[in-house]
């Protein structure tokens, strides 16, 4: 198992479209930025055949430090969840068989 990074995505874009390596990297970055900005504004992002990024509001609650047993308030916060599409789920399971 290996780990892919931005560099691998940029390389794939570079191979696919006739742009410079530099511009390919910038475009990958700006796609990620657009998605992040949209999520920060509170809007969900849905990419067909890949999945949805959903912004969810969590209410505040009283947590507990499991080590000391001490009570700590957890503030209300926004979290991001990713729901993979059926297509992606199937692609991932196809490999194991």
């Amino acid at each position: 198992m290996s780990t892919k990074t931005r560099a691998d995505l940029s390389e794939a874009v570079y191979q696919e479209v006739g742009l410079s390596r530099n511009e390919s990297a910038e475009l990958v970055e700006s796609v990620l930025d657009e998605i992040a900005d949209c999520l920060v504004s509170g809007d969900n992002v849905k990419i067909s055949s890949f999945g949805s990024f959903l912004v969810r509001d969590k209410r505040g609650r009283i947590g507990r430090n499991p080590k000391t047993g001490e009570e700590v308030p957890i503030e209300p916060r926004r979290v991001l969840t990713f729901r993979p599409s059926q297509v992606l789920r199937e692609r991932i399971n196809a490999r194991s068989k």
Partner: peptide, 11 residues
């Protein structure tokens, strides 16, 4: 990458 079992890390 995921289908191969790889991880994709975008800092």
């Amino acid at each position: 990458a995921l289908a191969k079992g790889d991880r994709v890390e975008l800092r």
